[in-house]
């Protein structure tokens, strides 16, 4: 049973449907992208969501972010329900939950410096003196390791640096919950490790709750306290990260985990020997 709490996010029976056309004279048919997902994210906790493409994990993230209103079910965000999309109250709630997407280049303005974009996020939500907004933007850029790069334009930064800037812009608002939707998936492995470290460090420092959505099971396992497995719109199981990866309960979870490439060639041979009884 999901604990009733005001500290954190509680989602109950979330459903999202999209119209997919209609038969002649028939009713409009709907595709259930998310089909009854219930979970909670405690304060300071990271919930990982894994699943394959089309499983509904991004849709789930958009509903939790308040970008899309669910077709069914409810969300309690630190004891409050989400206001209707677009309302003044919704705007106030929006700063409490931020999203970091896969492709940082697509979500920044190419004509604005990094510092200006972080500052704008702040001044959109607060009335601040120019100098204070500048200082807080600069402090945030320093925290993500871009102290000296604030004057640069997006195209003058590498992919990893740009993702740091996007994280700075999300965190400068001091949100309670950050949704990372494939936030490290497009980065080179060496840069990916840097960003994962940054997220681990910041969530500790800022007591952030994270919803970490990814198709990369190893990354999700590493960063999450608990993990949920999604398949065909359903949240099949949620468990403590370690337990879930060691002893998945659901058949589909087992199949998904079995498909992860081996760590070393030796492990691969041992696995193949177990699975097929002989080396190919």
């Amino acid at each position: 049973m999901i604990p009733a709490t005001t500290e954190g996010l509680v989602a109950t029976g979330l459903v999202q449907t999209y119209p997919v056309g209609r038969r002649l004279f028939g009713p409009v048919e709907h595709f259930r992208a998310v089909d009854g997902a219930s979970f909670h994210i405690a304060e300071g906790e990271t919930l990982g969501i894994v699943g394959e493409s089309g499983s509904g994990k991004s849709t789930l993230g958009r509903m939790v972010a308040g970008i899309e209103a669910p077709a069914g079910g409810s969300i309690s965000f630190w004891g409050e329900s989400y206001a209707p999309v677009g309302s003044p109250q919704w705007r106030r709630q929006r700063r409490q939950v931020q999203v970091v997407f896969q492709n940082p280049a697509a979500v920044v303005d190419p004509r604005w410096t990094i510092h200006a974009q972080v500052r704008e996020a702040l001044t959109t939500h607060e009335t601040l003196a120019r100098s204070e907004a500048d200082d807080r933007a600069q402090a945030m850029l320093t925290m993500v390791g871009l102290a000296t790069l604030g004057k640069r334009l997006p195209h003058q930064l590498s992919g990893g640096q740009l993702q740091r800037a996007v994280i700075a812009r999300a965190l400068v608002l001091r949100p309670r919950l950050v949704i990372c939707d494939e936030a490290v998936s497009a980065l080179d492995v060496s840069v990916q490790a840097q960003i994962i470290n940054l997220l681990l460090e910041l969530r500790e420092k800022l007591k952030l709750s994270l919803m970490f959505i990814s198709h990369d099971l190893s990354v999700v396992r590493h960063i999450s306290h608990r993990v949920g497995v999604m398949h065909a719109g359903k949240l099949l199981e949620i468990g403590d990260s370690r337990t879930l990866f060691e002893a998945p309960q659901h058949d589909y979870s087992r199949r998904l985990l079995a498909a992860i490439p081996a760590d070393t060639p030796r492990q691969r041979r041992e696995r193949d020997l177990r699975t097929f009884g002989a080396l190919p």
Binding site: A193, Q194, L200, H222, S241
Partner: peptide, 19 residues
């Protein structure tokens, strides 16, 4: 900087600096 299953979750990765 591989994130294998033998690694302790939540620990800092040995990330190489720069790009």
């Amino acid at each position: 900087c591989r994130i294998g299953f033998s690694r302790e979750p939540g620990t800092m990765l040995e990330a190489v600096k720069g790009t």
